[in-house]
Each structure stands twice: as C-alpha cells, then as structure tokens.
Simulated assay, not measured.
Amino acid sequence: MKYEIIQYNESYKEQLINFILSIQQNEFNIAIDRADQPDLEDIESNYLSSGGQFWMALSEDNEIVGCVGLVRLANNNSALKKMFVNSNMKNLKIGKKLLNKVVDTALNHNIEHIYLGTIDKFISAQHFYSNNGFKEIEQSALPPDFPKMDVDNRFYYRTI
C-alpha cells in the first residue's frame, strides 16, 4: 500500500480525531474521549503556533493511517505527541517515517531534546521508542512545560 506524509490540514480534523479515538478506545480500551484531548480541537494553536508541527500519513484514498505531533517547549525542548499508526499497517514503516519528520524538524529548529509520555499498555510503542534512541525517565525529569496527559504513566526522552 502506498501512502504519503503531509503536514496537518484542517480539512482532516474530524477524521484525525476519530482515527486517534478509535485506536485509544477500541484497540487499547483506554477510557479517554474527545473532551480529554483539547489539543486536537485546535492543532494550529496547540502545535503549529509554538513552532511545532503535526503530520499525517495518508493512504491512496486519503484515509489517515498514521499521525504525530511535535510541540515546541522552552529551552530547546519539545514534546512528541499523538503518535499513532493504524495497527494493520505497522509493517510499512509509517511510524519510522513519521518519527524521522519529527527528528528532522528538531534538527532544523535547534531543538535539543524530545520528550514524550505514553501508557504502559502501549508496549509496542515503548519498544519502538527504545529502538529509536529514546530512554525511559521518571516523570519528575520532564520539563516543567511538558504537556502531560492524565493517562500517561511512562515517559521517555531523546537528545538530538
């Protein structure tokens, strides 16, 4: 299957929210809903206006099959947020290509550290992050402006 990675476009807002909620609720049975994720209601102000970015992987029929966001934080730090890939397409290296977009952006914008929060149920995600240079840290080691979600209970960082 062919796919392309594009920058966020407002016309995909509802499809993006439904894509993320479907994975969180149906694949991982996490008790989280749209109201718990206000950042998704305004990608522009929550990701883009701070100097961050948001990408989507689209299939040939313009269906979202993956996504990732990068939030710019103070002191040359950033937060990787909302990294999801359709479980039927994980062997296509979509996650790796999305992560490469994050790393390339960090390099080009003088970002030195990428932090992320995840959930212990996301075991494959934890392996993915570890295999791509992220180290697990305690919550207390996160930057003070890190946008933590209540469900996050595992934290990682990577130096660029």
Rank of each mutant, 00 (worst) to 15 (best):
E60L: 09
D61Q: 12
E63W: 04
V65R: 03
G66A: 11
C67V: 01
V68C: 03
V71N: 12
V71C: 13
R72P: 12
R72D: 06
R72V: 10
L73R: 07
A74M: 08
A74I: 07
N75D: 09
N76G: 11
N76Y: 12
N76W: 08
S78K: 02
A79T: 15
L80P: 08
L80F: 03
K81P: 02
K82I: 03
K82E: 02
M83H: 04
F84Y: 13
F84Q: 05
S87M: 13
N88C: 14
M89K: 15
M89R: 14
K90Q: 15
K90W: 12
N91V: 07
L92V: 02
L92C: 11
L92H: 03
G95C: 05
K97M: 14
K97F: 04
L98Q: 02
L98D: 02
L99T: 01
N100Q: 00
N100M: 04
V103Y: 02
V103E: 01
V103C: 09
T105M: 12
A106P: 06
L107R: 15
L107G: 14
H109C: 09
N110E: 09
I111V: 15
E112D: 14
H113T: 10
Y115S: 14
Y115F: 15
L116G: 04
T118S: 10
I119L: 11
I119G: 06
I119C: 04
D120N: 00
F122D: 00
I123C: 03
S124W: 03
S124F: 11
Q126Y: 00
Q126I: 05
H127T: 05
H127Y: 10
Y129W: 05
Y129M: 01
S130V: 08
S130K: 15
N132H: 04
N132C: 09
G133S: 13
G133L: 08
F134Y: 09
K135C: 05
E136V: 02
E136K: 03
I137Q: 14
E138Y: 00
E138K: 01
E138I: 06
Q139P: 00
S140Y: 07
L142R: 10
P143R: 10
D145F: 08
P147M: 10
K148N: 08
K148M: 14
K148V: 06
